[in-house]
């Protein structure tokens, strides 16, 4: 989905708030949210694609305004409510106030491959174009490369298509490629010479560049 999580190229966030070193968890609740994310996804009967998508479905304002591990908390709790493990009323009563959850899943597994494919159709050096389909559900094809042309620089093994996995489409294997995009192909006049971005993309995201 073209969600707020799909941040590549969005302007206006200002400088990076870099720190030389920091603990993994700066507050105790972060450690507990991490622990909950590790355990809760399985309790909800969910997989990795569903977990990622549960945070992507957060209200955009909450997503941007919240600390990272609030994404884990909100996402995994949404999965637990959707799976019927807990109810929204139950958690709000226990928390003593509103407990915002992510918005409903709008994805459809029909958008995705249904049969395993492990043999790579493209090779290193091939020109490819990313399909421009902007699905409403989960995908790992960032918005900033959809419709753009690039060159395959590496062929990786096949792995499960997240778009299917995240919406009950099962585990369907498909080859993965690292595709190189020139900065100017992505950003036009706003791009720069001497900069390239490599994005790892499943084969079902790509089409031959005619």
């Amino acid at each position: 989905m073209d969600g707020v999580h799909d941040l590549g190229g969005i302007a206006g966030f200002g400088p990076v708030e870099w720190t030389p070193d920091e603990p993994y968890f700066s507050e105790e609740w972060e450690r507990r949210a991490f622990r909950l994310g590790l355990g809760g996804t399985g309790i909800a009967g969910a997989n990795g694609g569903m977990f990622r998508h549960s945070a992507e479905r957060m209200d955009p304002a909450q997503y941007l305004d919240s600390p990272y591990y609030e994404h884990w908390l909100t996402g995994v709790t949404t999965l637990l409510v959707e799976a019927g493990v807990v109810t929204a009323e139950e958690i709000e009563e226990r928390a003593g106030g509103p407990f915002p959850l992510s918005r409903p899943d709008r994805g459809r597994p029909t958008d995705t491959p249904t049969d395993d494919r492990t043999e790579a159709r493209f090779g290193v050096g091939d020109r490819v174009r990313v399909r421009k389909w902007h699905p409403l559900g989960h995908t790992r094809a960032p918005r900033y490369v959809q419709g753009r042309e690039g060159v395959v620089v590496r062929v990786d093994g096949a792995a499960n298509v997240p778009d299917a996995e995240a919406h009950g489409g099962g585990f369907v294997k498909n080859p993965i490629y690292s595709v190189r995009f020139a900065s100017r192909e992505l950003w036009g006049e706003g791009g720069s010479d001497g900069e390239a971005v490599h994005v790892d993309l499943w084969e079902c995201y790509l089409e031959e560049d005619a």
Partner: peptide
């Protein structure tokens, strides 16, 4: 502003129930 339960309380709530 939205009276959302504090993050610590939300984490504790879902954890305790599970």
């Amino acid at each position: 502003p939205d009276h959302v339960a504090p993050i610590e309380a939300r984490v504790a709530a879902i954890e305790a129930i599970l």
